[in-house]
Amino acid sequence: MIFSLYLPPAEIEDAIPLIWWLSGLTCTDDNFSQKGGFQEYAAKHKVAIAIPDTSPRGDNIPDSNDWDLGQGASFYVDATQEPWAENYHMYTYITQELTQIMHDLVPGYSGKESIIGHSMGGHGALMIGLKNSNRFSSISAFAPILNPIQVPWGIKAFNAYLGSEESTWHEWDATSLIKQMDQIPPILITQGTADTFYDVQLQEDAFMKAAQNKPVQYDKKDGYDHSYFTISTFIGQHIAFHVEQLNK
């Protein structure tokens, strides 16, 4: 596994919190580090940014001819079905193995964390953040797959990775998770109205109904699309949102 880690300019006495970024379908750890435009804001607020890859990689790692399944398309779950079950344990990798590595690598790590994601990674950030609500100070997402068990991308991936028994899917679905929770970290979601995936893959109605009376801010941005141009435009707002919670 390959990952990127941004460390801000800091003095030895500074306490540095960690924000996780999870990328979307077909991405690697390079997409956000090269196109996200976050460095100015992370430096200003003195936060570290952890950027995992989106799946295991390698010639001996199972893959698919489809761009939305296999390498680059893990959906951040722990797969139970062959041929994925041996290698595609992304949830455990991020929440345990890579977590320890990142904590060891961040000088002056404060012990505080938040999580952000985009598209498939927005699903991952919401799912991981909600499943570990005591760990993360806040959660945010750009154009997330909010209800994967009800949309084509998620149904395809969950069938492949988790099997056809749909009752096992709910623990990996943000809408199902938030419906069951009384207390959640604050959540910020940004969705562009010109996003070509919005109508089919990214609809918010079920999630927002399940999140009623919970601290969720859902912002639609007129004319913005699914690209990193949208992310780089609003990433400063997201980092400021997280820093406010991390400093409490």
Rank of each mutant, 00 (worst) to 15 (best):
L98D: 03
D66G: 14
G58N: 09
N60Y: 13
K131P: 02
I101S: 06
V243Q: 04
D63I: 14
M127Q: 06
S176N: 04
T95I: 06
F32E: 00
T190A: 08
M102E: 10
K220Q: 11
K209C: 02
V216Y: 07
S64E: 02
L177S: 10
G108N: 12
P8K: 00
G223I: 07
F229M: 13
F229A: 15
I155K: 14
G72F: 10
V216K: 08
V106T: 07
S167G: 13
E40V: 10
A206D: 15
D205L: 11
S232Y: 02
V47D: 01
I94S: 00
W84L: 04
Q39G: 09
I116D: 02
Q96Y: 04
Y228M: 04
A143D: 04
M181V: 05
K46D: 04
F3P: 08
A43Q: 04
S232R: 15
T54W: 02
I145K: 06
D225E: 05
K112A: 12
F241A: 03
G154Q: 04
D59M: 09
A42S: 03
I178H: 00
A157Y: 02
L18V: 12
Q81R: 15
D78K: 03
I101Q: 13
H118Q: 14
T196Q: 09
F234I: 07
S138Y: 10
K214W: 03
F234Y: 13
Q150W: 01
H123E: 11
E171H: 01
P185L: 08
H123L: 14
S64T: 09
E166W: 08
S119F: 01
Y198E: 03
I189F: 06
E204I: 09
L130W: 00
A206K: 13
E171I: 12
I12L: 12
Y41W: 14
